[in-house]
């Protein structure tokens, strides 16, 4: 590290980082530079994951090829919970430190989370019909996942219903934090209650009860979905930022740069 007279101290560095993190201009520029890399990473993970899952992974001994739905169902279900955690943590940051960027992340998470939840529910249904013999049962796993969808829709609805966006963010943050009780319920539902849905395969303390050739594509797909979440979140947060800060000088500069 090169030491100069102007080099800030450690705590100064942290402050700088902290202010930059919360600074809209900085976020906008950095995310713009990051996005192409994320797209590239997503493409690699998606192509290898899909090829592994649909072509090279062997068929299941009981479920045959229908088990391949796992490669979209399980990553979507994991992400539906992960996105909620990100949303709730952003909500807490928005409530406590009043950081505007956290508010924007909070509201940007909701439609993405709702999408993943929707995918998990629909693909689960498409898997349940041929295997279990039913599109839907009111077991604890499925019901709690459906409630998760309603929580996301509630966040979207509440945010759009309140005119003042700063107040709306606060209201939505509280709703997101209250709803977090649902997350452990979803995860442990298969243990706490007698559900039709089977227990956890990968996310348990034991070693995963899935053959390694089937597991690797699953992890690749989970990685792809996670990167996709990052991409979609950045895109939405950037829009939110532009919308809220439209009159500001940095947006003006941005427009001028685009013109030139």
């Amino acid at each position: 590290m090169i030491k100069t007279e102007a080099a800030p101290s450690n705590s100064g560095l942290f402050k700088l980082w902290y202010h930059r993190m919360a600074s809209p201009v900085w976020f906008y520029r950095i995310s713009g530079k990051l996005l192409p890399w994320l797209w590239a990473l997503f493409a690699v993970l998606l192509v290898t994951g899909l090829y592994g899952g649909l072509v090279t992974a062997p068929a299941d001994y009981q479920q045959g090829d229908s088990f391949r739905i796992i490669y979209v169902h399980v990553p979507a279900a994991w992400l539906s919970m992960f996105v909620y955690m990100v949303m709730a943590v952003s909500g807490a940051i928005a409530l406590i430190w009043r950081i505007k960027l956290a508010e924007m992340v909070l509201v940007s998470c909701a439609p993405i989370g709702a999408s993943f939840t929707f995918i998990a529910l629909v693909t689960g249904s498409l898997w349940g019909k041929p295997m279990w013999g039913t599109w839907w049962v009111w077991d604890a796993r499925m019901t709690s996942e459906l409630i998760l969808l309603f929580l996301y829709l509630g966040v979207i609805g509440l945010y759009s219903a309140i005119e003042d966006k700063r107040m709306a963010s606060r209201a939505v943050a509280i709703l997101a934090l209250v709803g977090i009780v649902n997350i452990p319920i979803i995860h442990y539902s298969v243990e706490w209650w007698n559900t039709l849905h089977q227990g956890a395969t990968v996310t348990k303390f034991d070693k995963p009860s899935i053959h390694i050739d089937m597991l690797i594509p699953l992890l690749l797909m989970a990685g792809a979905f996670k990167v996709f979440f990052a991409i979609s979140l950045l895109l939405r947060t950037r829009n939110e930022l532009l919308e809220r800060e439209l009159p500001r000088k940095w947006v003006k500069q941005l427009v001028e740069e685009n013109d030139g």
Binding site: A59, G64, D65, S66, R68, I69, V72, H73, A76, P111, I112, S115, F118, I119, V122, T123, L126, W127, K129, P130, F228, I231, S232, L235, R236, N239
Partner: peptide, 27 residues
């Protein structure tokens, strides 16, 4: 897909459409 084409491909198709919307609309 071993006779499960309808279920497997519609799962993947629906997922693709929903994910696509999640980038096209923000863009």
């Amino acid at each position: 897909m071993g006779g499960y084409a309808l279920y497997v491909w519609s799962s993947i198709g629906i997922t693709a459409v929903v994910l696509l919307l999640n980038v096209l609309l923000p863009l």
